Amino acid sequence: MAQVSADTSLALQRIDNAQQLVDPFGREIAYLRVSVTDRCDFRCVYCMSEHMTFLPKRDLLSLEELDRLCAAFVRRGVKKLRITGGEPLVRKNIMWLFRALGRHLESGDLQELTLTTNGSQLEKYASELKAAGVERINVSLDTIDAVKFRAITRWGDLATVLRGLDAAEKAGIKIKINAVALKGVNEDEIEDLIRFAHGRGADMTLIETMPLGDIGEDRTAQYLPLSMVRAKLMDRFTLQESAFRTGGPARYVTVKETGGRLGFITPLTHNFCESCNRVRLTCTGTLFMCLGQEDAADLRAPLRASDDDTLLDTAIVEAISRKPKGHDFVIDRRTKKPSLTRHMSVTGG
């Protein structure tokens, strides 16, 4: 490692001893979502086009670099890490990163290490994830109809995902099922999805489709306001308000008839920006301070410029100082264009 000068050491000490990352609106940044790859073994109709061009592997941060970046955020007060993609479990040697990050759980500096996955690789990795300290995962599952599942994912196999859910449950990992509400696709199946999730002891979260990237589909045809979904569900269920929070954007109710929790993520009908404590790191080292804005900070350059973290820590603090108050998501019914050109798989789910 390069020799660190006295001045550099003093500067690093000042950064390390500073208070937790706080944005211009007084929100403490305690949650980092890390995309480890933009690649996925599905091509979900609301997320990607069928024929995607992915980043060349040379542009991706190494697993060691991702570990170092995560450690820098943990040192600055981040308490929750979520590993995302693309599909994170298709990244080669990904379990090395989970095991490495587990040291922050053991030290007590990190409260939670979690994962968002499509479930395709869970049967293979569930036991290793649990051993690395992953206690809870989110699984994206928009339908429990095998034919419809193939249509939504284009490439996916429902039976494989269900075996993955079984493997995760057997390993002792708590599951939350996420479903994107899609008009004319799964809107008549939402009640069944809730009963399916709650019947397995899993929480359920419904998500409005987000206008990110060209997907080869008309987003205005997909968009289903969750305010309408909730109103229909109230005809069938008793929805009791809940104070439960996971640190993410979902707002929860308890479904009296099932005893399970149901969350709503509503970036369009009711944005969740006022309490946002999250930032997103891409697999190339770009930090997005807001999912719905283009402003970003390059952390790869300072990461690679020095063996110590002085430049990196300075870049992180500067980036958080630019975190906006909120996003500008909108479904444009005139142009039918996405609010942002980048795909969700680039930023991380």
Rank of each mutant, 00 (worst) to 15 (best):
D192E: 13
T254Q: 03
E241D: 14
G247T: 06
R236M: 04
E191H: 08
V255M: 03
N186Y: 11
L226A: 10
I207N: 12
V255Q: 10
G184R: 03
I190L: 13
T238M: 14
L206F: 13
G216R: 03
A231Q: 14
T238G: 15
R236E: 07
A202R: 01
R251I: 10
R230F: 08
Q240E: 11
I194F: 15
A243I: 07
D235H: 11
T254E: 12
S242V: 06
I207P: 08
D218S: 06
K232H: 12
M228P: 13
M234N: 10
L239T: 10
L224F: 12
Q240N: 09
D188H: 14
R200N: 05
E241L: 10
G248E: 04
V255F: 08
L212K: 12
G213R: 14
E241R: 08
S227M: 07
L182W: 00
F196D: 14
E241C: 09
D218K: 11
R195V: 03
T254Y: 03
Y223F: 14
M228V: 15
P225E: 06
H198K: 10
M204D: 03
T220C: 15
F196W: 14
K183E: 01
L224Q: 12
E187V: 12
T209E: 08
D188G: 13
T205K: 03
E189W: 13
A250V: 06
V229H: 08
M210D: 12
G248F: 05
A181H: 13
G199F: 09
P225G: 05
A231E: 15
Y252N: 11
L233D: 14
V229Q: 04
Q240F: 00
I190W: 15
R200Y: 10
T254A: 06
T220Q: 07
H198D: 00
G199C: 01
